[in-house]
Simulated assay, not measured.
Amino acid sequence: MTDAPSPQSETRWLKSYYTLRFLFSAAWAAGAFAVGGSGVPGIAAALLIAYPAWDALANYLDARRSGGFARNRPQAANAAISFATTVAVVLALGRSTDAVLAVFGIWAIVAGLLQLGAAVSRWKRSGAQWAMILSGAQSALAGGFFVVKAKAGGAPALEMIAGYASIGALYFFISAFWLFAGDRLRRHRHG
Results as ranks from 00 to 15, higher is better:
132 M>W: 15
132 M>N: 14
133 I>C: 04
134 L>P: 00
134 L>M: 12
134 L>D: 10
137 A>C: 06
137 A>E: 01
137 A>F: 15
138 Q>G: 09
138 Q>H: 06
140 A>R: 07
140 A>Q: 03
140 A>N: 13
141 L>A: 13
142 A>H: 03
143 G>M: 05
144 G>L: 01
144 G>W: 10
144 G>A: 13
144 G>S: 08
144 G>P: 07
144 G>M: 06
145 F>K: 08
145 F>L: 13
146 F>G: 00
146 F>K: 03
146 F>S: 08
147 V>K: 02
147 V>N: 03
148 V>G: 00
148 V>Q: 02
148 V>P: 00
148 V>N: 02
149 K>S: 07
149 K>N: 09
149 K>A: 14
150 A>H: 04
150 A>Y: 05
150 A>Q: 09
150 A>L: 09
150 A>I: 01
150 A>K: 05
151 K>C: 11
152 A>D: 13
152 A>E: 13
153 G>A: 06
153 G>W: 11
153 G>F: 12
153 G>Q: 04
155 A>G: 07
155 A>V: 01
156 P>F: 01
157 A>W: 00
157 A>H: 01
158 L>A: 06
158 L>M: 01
158 L>G: 05
158 L>Y: 04
160 M>T: 04
160 M>E: 11
160 M>F: 12
161 I>F: 13
162 A>F: 10
162 A>R: 05
164 Y>F: 13
165 A>H: 01
165 A>G: 06
165 A>E: 03
166 S>F: 11
167 I>G: 00
168 G>M: 07
168 G>C: 14
169 A>M: 00
169 A>E: 01
169 A>G: 01
170 L>P: 00
170 L>N: 04
171 Y>M: 10
172 F>G: 01
172 F>K: 14
172 F>R: 12
172 F>L: 05
174 I>K: 08
174 I>E: 03
174 I>G: 08
174 I>C: 07
174 I>L: 13
175 S>Y: 02
175 S>K: 08
175 S>G: 12
176 A>S: 11
176 A>C: 08
178 W>V: 02
179 L>A: 11
179 L>N: 03
179 L>T: 06
179 L>W: 10
179 L>P: 00
179 L>K: 14
180 F>A: 10
181 A>L: 12
182 G>I: 05
183 D>E: 12
183 D>H: 07
183 D>F: 03
183 D>A: 14
184 R>Y: 11
184 R>A: 14
184 R>I: 08
